[in-house]
Amino acid sequence: MPRFILALAVFATPALAQETTLAGTDGKNSLGTIPCATIAGDALRSCNAELRRRDDGGATLAVGMGNGEVRNIYFTDGIPDSTNSTAKLSYETRGDIMVIFVEPGEVYELPKAALNN
């Protein structure tokens, strides 16, 4: 199985520059960090994350929320369509970054390219 490393993406947010790293990979799943805020009003911080590819072509982004919980965001055809939360999910694209919102105040930023590899 070939091994590869997803490229490091650097981008600016209103608060400060954040880095997304999805460097550790087994050729299918990637480990790293993404910018996130898990409480309404909090600034973005670096959260541990794993992007897991599913056999059906979809993906799951598992993000450590910092309180022992993990937020799973499920993707179909590169679009976030559900989470392990009952709260409303929405997203928008800002350049090369997908910004995912889970009400009332969770925010997750992911390079769109990470979903294409």
Rank of each mutant, 00 (worst) to 15 (best):
L16H: 12
A23L: 14
A49D: 03
Y108H: 07
A49E: 02
D55P: 11
Q18E: 12
K112A: 01
G66K: 00
R45S: 08
K112I: 06
S30Q: 09
C47E: 02
T20A: 07
V10R: 13
R52L: 06
V99S: 13
F75T: 00
R94E: 14
T83N: 03
R3A: 08
T83L: 03
T83Y: 01
T33L: 03
K28F: 14
R54F: 08
K112Y: 04
P104A: 12
T33N: 10
V63L: 04
R71P: 01
L16Q: 10
D26A: 12
A37H: 07
V107L: 07
E92V: 01
D77R: 03
I100V: 11
L110D: 02
N67I: 12
F4L: 15
T93V: 10
G64T: 07
L44A: 01
D56C: 05
R53V: 03
T83C: 03
P111E: 02
A49H: 00
R53D: 05
T86D: 14
A9C: 13
L6D: 07
S90Y: 10
V63Y: 06
L6E: 08
A12N: 14
E50A: 15
L61M: 06
V102T: 12
T86F: 05
I73L: 04
E109Y: 06
F101T: 12
A15C: 05
D77M: 01
A15G: 08
D77H: 09
G64I: 02
V102D: 14
A17M: 15
R53K: 11
I39C: 14
L51C: 04
V63T: 05
M98L: 14
N48E: 14
L115I: 03
T86S: 15
G95V: 00
R71V: 06
A62K: 00
T60Y: 05
A23F: 10
L110P: 04
D81H: 11
A43Y: 12
E19M: 12
P35T: 00
T13H: 02
M65H: 08
M65N: 10
A43P: 11
T76L: 09
A40E: 15
L110V: 07
A87P: 13
F4Q: 07
Y74I: 02
A59T: 05
A12C: 11
G24E: 11
D42Q: 15
P14S: 09
Y74Q: 04
Q18L: 09
A37L: 07
L115D: 01
V10Y: 08
Y91V: 00
S30R: 12
A113W: 05
I5W: 08
F101D: 13
